[in-house]
Design a protein around this nucleic acid. Structure first.
Length: 277
DNA sequence: ACGTTGTCCTGTCTGC
DNA sequence: TGCAGACAGGACAACG
């Protein structure tokens, strides 16, 4: 679930709570969430370290520690990283809590994930950019290199469906199923349009939609449809502003036609058949 | 090189 | 009501 706006919100909500805090202990209850190294080694290395920096790359959250190692956290569909303060630290772990970081002053960071798809890797900070996960990421959507012209050239060079290209993390990272639908609605582009058929005007609309939708979603602190909550356990509110995602059968806010839902590359795609060509 | 499909999991929704 | 099956926001491997 967490796409760029959600991971950015998790980062922003955790930062003031955990920056500079020492990890006194760590416990892992579901071993598969630790991608590397071994669970024992992970716990040993993390123990006693202070958190010196939080970063986001695409949909990954990076937590730098003061022993020159970094956690690379992937939330996948249902992962959560929750700050638990002193008043709630006695609250028992539920069955979806797979790892706990006990911080100084008796507070905790709990990693929950009902679907168990989320992963945490621990690597040398200097090697973060060379890990398989991070290496394959393309541009950040707000990077200055991403421009209308750059998008136009890229779309021209490919023949995939526009929705799938927007979700291709090796091109632009951070956009998933929800925001690709919303961006394409904004742009008035059908999700199955072959990318090289887009005119420069249409690409401009996609670019503007990407910037607008992602910025608004960050402002609204993400989209909470099911599981997503930020680092403090609070829901976001962009779900109220979604125009097409999850609105199958409802009327398009622009033209009143019925929003429909199909599959594009195995993923659900919501769109207005009248507004999106 | 690219696109498609299956897999990892559990919770929830849909339809019979 | 109960239950089986479909389906879910992601990423990756295997295959054609």
């Amino acid at each position: 679930m967490p796409e760029l706006p959600e991971v950015e919100t998790i980062k922003r909500t955790l930062e003031p709570k955990i920056l500079g805090r020492r990890i006194e202990n760590a416990e892992v209850f579901y071993c598969s969430i630790i991608k590397c190294p071994s669970v024992n080694e992970f716990v040993d290395k993390v123990k006693g370290c202070s958190i010196i920096k939080l970063r986001r790359r695409g949909k990954y959250l990076l937590i730098d520690l003061d022993n020159s190692s970094s956690m690379i956290i992937s939330f996948r569909m249902t992962g959560q990283l929750l700050y638990v303060d002193k008043n709630n630290v006695g609250y028992p772990y539920d069955r979806h809590t797979h790892a706990v970081f006990k911080l100084e002053n008796g507070v905790e960071l709990r990693f929950r994930d009902p679907r168990k798809f989320g992963r945490i890797a621990l690597v040398k900070t200097s090697e973060v950019e060379n890990t398989k996960e991070i290496l394959k990421l393309g541009y950040e959507p707000f990077s200055p290199e991403v421009t209308e012209d750059m998008l136009f050239q890229f779309f021209k060079s490919r023949r995939g469906k526009i929705k799938q290209l927007l979700m291709d993390q090796s091109f632009i990272c951070g956009i998933g199923n929800i925001y690709s639908d919303e961006i394409l609605f904004y742009a008035g582009i059908h999700p199955e349009r072959t990318s090289n058929t887009l005119t420069i005007e249409e690409v401009r609309a996609v670019y503007n939609g990407m910037v607008k939708v992602l910025n608004e979603a960050i402002e609204q602190r993400g989209t909470s449809i099911k599981d997503y909550v930020d680092g403090k356990g609070d829901k976001g509110s962009y779900q109220h502003l979604l125009k097409v995602y999850g609105r199958k059968g409802e009327k398009c806010c622009r033209c009143g036609s019925e929003i429909i839902c199909t599959k594009v590359g195995g993923r659900t795609a919501h769109f207005c058949p009248h507004c999106q060509k």
